[in-house]
Amino acid sequence: MKPVFTRPRSLADVSTHYCPGCTHGIVHRLIAEAIDELDIAERTIGVAPVGCAVLAYNYFNVDFQEAAHGRAPAVATGIKRALPDRVVFTYQGDGDLASIGTAEIVHAANRGEAITVIYVNNAIYGMTGGQMAPTTLAGQKTTTSPFGRDVEVCGYPIRMAELLATLVAPRYIARVAVNSPAHIQQAKRAIKRAFEVQVNDHGFALVEVLSTCPTNWGLPPKKALAWLEENMIPYYPLGEFKVPKEAE
């Protein structure tokens, strides 16, 4: 029999610390597959965030830097400016990118830094125990919005992909989800494209990945997939918000 699915080489052969059913692992695998398929592992440098993916550097067989909370795009800028021929990507959650790191992501995008940003949005702070994130949905209960997010007090969940797509410099911005095989296939294509944009066009690319947090959503993993479909996708529509000019 021929292998039709095996672990990508760039994904370290270790067990992750992620909770059962957490889809960070799927996103990791898609990144590793993209790195393998583009054959860039030996010139790729990743930047890990603060949050659940803080230990991402243990899970990829590429060089890695661990950034302070929200600062991954600035760290990636430093790496890319020092080594312009390398492939640099950040892996960031919604607290990291959409809250404490808004200045860094907006300006890295606005400068058109030739980096790839994988932005995992699960609408909650996972690592710290399920607090409200800037992406937490209206009415969603978290440990710091125990009565549900009150948009009159906290504002509305922030749509980073759309916000960043208003900028001139970014080449590729998309939102995908990893809650079904079909969505995972779309996510795979988008993530690979986001690396290709960096490698071929020397441009900024960001993929927002809607992801689950069964533990802090208080749902069994299987139900978390459905919750994402029914609650997140209607507010965070999937699609490509910015594509390279030649592809338009």
Partner: peptide, 11 residues
């Protein structure tokens, strides 16, 4: 493809 922990290989 659905497994978050890459524990399944397929032939």
């Amino acid at each position: 493809r659905m497994c978050p922990d890459c524990v399944i290989e397929v032939y």
